[in-house]
Computed example of a mutant assay.
Amino acid sequence: MPKFSWHTCPVPEGLPVRQVYGFLFVPDGRVLLRVDGSKHTLPGGRPEPGEVEYRDILRRESMEEVTVDIDEPHYLGYQCVDDGIAPYAQVRMAAVISLVHPPAPDPDSGRTYRRLLVHPGKVGDLLAWGETGYLQATAAAEAAVAVFHLPSDGLPETGDL
């Protein structure tokens, strides 16, 4: 069973980054989650050959999976995954959505994902990633207020984008 740990420092040199995911906020302070069946997750995915900048990976994946443009992302940290073979990092970032496009199929899967907006306080529950998920969601909610100056009070609970 893999072990997960959350770190707010830069990814150590030599630890491969296999995924980049983003907590994407709308201006009212809610977070966009990608919905696939009954599973909720963050938009994001694997770097493609030649991609090294986390922000570029997140921008591409955000457009492919949930068809949104984002402003400059803010690095939150990384989740270390130790699968007993070779540990790797999953980077987490936060960004504000700047433009919403009509839903379209993901070029990788061919599926059109539902886009759900949720209160930041519900993200940890919906992701169901355990303690590290709650730590990540908290870091994202704090960045939304401190970095992006988004509201934290009086937010609607949920809704489709």
Results as ranks from 00 to 15, higher is better:
3 K>L: 13
6 W>P: 02
7 H>L: 01
7 H>D: 00
13 E>H: 14
13 E>N: 12
14 G>I: 09
16 P>W: 11
17 V>D: 15
19 Q>C: 04
20 V>D: 06
20 V>M: 08
22 G>L: 01
23 F>Q: 00
24 L>M: 11
27 P>T: 10
30 R>P: 11
30 R>K: 10
31 V>I: 15
33 L>N: 10
33 L>R: 08
38 S>Q: 06
39 K>S: 04
42 L>A: 06
44 G>V: 12
46 R>Y: 14
46 R>K: 15
48 E>P: 01
49 P>E: 13
53 E>M: 14
56 D>K: 08
58 L>G: 02
59 R>Q: 14
59 R>P: 11
60 R>S: 09
60 R>D: 11
60 R>P: 10
62 S>L: 01
63 M>P: 01
66 V>F: 08
67 T>H: 12
67 T>K: 13
69 D>L: 07
75 Y>H: 08
78 Y>K: 07
79 Q>N: 02
80 C>W: 00
80 C>E: 12
85 I>G: 09
85 I>F: 12
89 A>F: 08
91 V>N: 04
92 R>P: 03
92 R>C: 02
94 A>F: 00
94 A>E: 02
105 P>D: 11
106 D>L: 04
107 P>K: 03
107 P>A: 05
109 S>C: 03
109 S>E: 11
112 T>E: 10
114 R>H: 11
116 L>V: 15
117 L>V: 04
117 L>E: 01
119 H>K: 07
119 H>F: 07
119 H>D: 14
119 H>Y: 05
121 G>L: 04
121 G>Y: 06
123 V>Y: 01
125 D>G: 15
126 L>D: 12
126 L>Q: 12
127 L>D: 05
128 A>T: 09
129 W>S: 15
130 G>V: 01
131 E>M: 10
131 E>V: 14
134 Y>Q: 09
137 A>F: 02
138 T>L: 02
138 T>A: 03
138 T>Y: 04
140 A>M: 00
141 A>P: 10
143 A>L: 00
144 A>K: 09
146 A>I: 08
147 V>P: 02
148 F>D: 01
151 P>N: 13
151 P>H: 13
154 G>V: 13
157 E>S: 06
157 E>L: 07
160 D>P: 10
